[in-house]
Design a protein around this nucleic acid. Structure first.
Lengths: 222, 222
DNA sequence: CGCTAATTTGACCTGGATCAACTACGGTGG
DNA sequence: CCACCGTAGTTGATCCAGGTCAAATTAGCG
């Protein structure tokens, strides 16, 4: 259930980061030597909770995760979905108090990296700091896309955008190709991500299918 | 219209950053010595445009700014509002290509800081890098609040949250107190920020006034 | 005082919500 | 191999928050 430091573990992360900027051997080694505590988790299981004070961040090694927040009487808003290579709560490195939850979508393997080690890494290697910083900025850019979709697009356009995003994100890390990708989300989760009701999501998906844009049955075809 | 390096200029910024972590003299001096090109701008004037490749970031010294994006046939989504001390496009330091516009709300004084100098500053002083990074993470946290409001709150709650945010942000930098603050936004801008129509914003404001929660006439009272 | 932009009001419309069945399907235990 | 059960997906009927359009009314400002 729990082990330590296998260089291969961090390979996904390094590959993702190196697609932005290439590192020196010293830098790569430093990343590889990060201590990672690995855990296998079941589907739909919380990883970090709203209000927690985090002392480590979570690297997704396998499977999907998502971030969400609940307000009174069970209204849930989902903020993002994450696949292998993502560090969904990297922000807790500088803002330890969580203002939302992080949980698995599917069964997943995740690696926890202590903040102390990340702090040391980023102070020693500004280039690595910059790339991680950049990663959180991409996160923010995606939030802006979602805001755009929620505020000024109808359900049909919004869904189309979301599905494209999820495809492209997976394609970028080699988890999808040929316009086909896994989509382990149910309609309730899509609804909470888009600020819609599950019923309307269902109808919107039918529209998309009807217009020949997608096929779905636990995997997509755009 | 355009001048250089007056230590006082960066005082707002330093004060804001020091509310997070205190700096050594060397660090403070390094910030103060950043070259700043100052410009006075009119109200409702673009500062950086969607698609631009930025080579500097913009520090608000006086007045308000906002970020927005337009999609087909004039639908606009506003992503954020900014007051003195904010660097609304700090993200362009690591993602130079703008994916939205930055513009003034009111007449404003802004200072431009070249990315080169910021890069040098952040590689020399990891503590400063961390605080600036943190600032962009707060930005992202506010996006999440907005997502929450757009997705799962009705117009009344959404408006209340937005007004509180704008008050608290100004209070934090000494621009407001006693539950009173300037609010130089018109109803169309509020509408585009909340994903609503201007008509509905008007009615929602009337509700808020009616319920005794606010007074408005170019300044608020919560 | 006159012009323009911003706010307000009214009438009517619609995208998406809500509620309540009902169906399909993958276990799971007998 | 089948009956049962729980979860997820569909469907239909009805409702309402918020949109749209258009016409006042009011504020600012030179």
């Amino acid at each position: 259930m729990s082990s330590v430091a296998d260089p291969k573990l961090l390979h996904t992360l390094i590959r993702k980061l190196e697609s932005i900027a290439s590192f020196s051997d010293e830098e790569s080694t430093a990343i590889e030597n990060l201590p990672v505590r690995v855990r296998a988790l079941n589907a739909r299981q919380d990883i970090v909770r709203d209000g927690d004070r985090a002392s480590q961040s979570c690297l997704i090694l396998e499977g999907w995760a998502y971030r969400y927040k609940i307000i009174d009487e069970g209204k849930r808003q989902i903020f993002s979905f994450h696949v292998a290579g993502d560090i969904p709560d990297l922000h807790s490195l500088h803002i330890p108090q969580m203002d939302h939850n992080l949980a698995t979508v599917t069964a997943a393997v995740v690696g926890f990296i202590p903040h102390d080690d990340l702090h040391e890494l980023t102070t020693r290697f500004p280039r690595i700091a910059a790339v991680l910083w950049r990663d959180t900025l991409v996160d923010a850019a995606i939030f802006r896309q979602w805001l755009m979709s929620m505020g000024r697009r109808n359900a049909f356009e919004h869904m189309a955008h979301l599905l494209c995003e999820l495809y492209l994100r997976q394609e970028a890390v080699g988890l999808a190709s040929e316009y086909r990708c896994p989509l382990p989300l149910n309609q309730l989760e899509l609804a909470d991500a888009m600020g819609l009701s599950n019923v309307h999501v269902n109808r919107t998906l039918q529209d998309l299918r009807g217009s020949g844009m997608i096929t779905l049955s636990r995997s997509t075809l755009v």
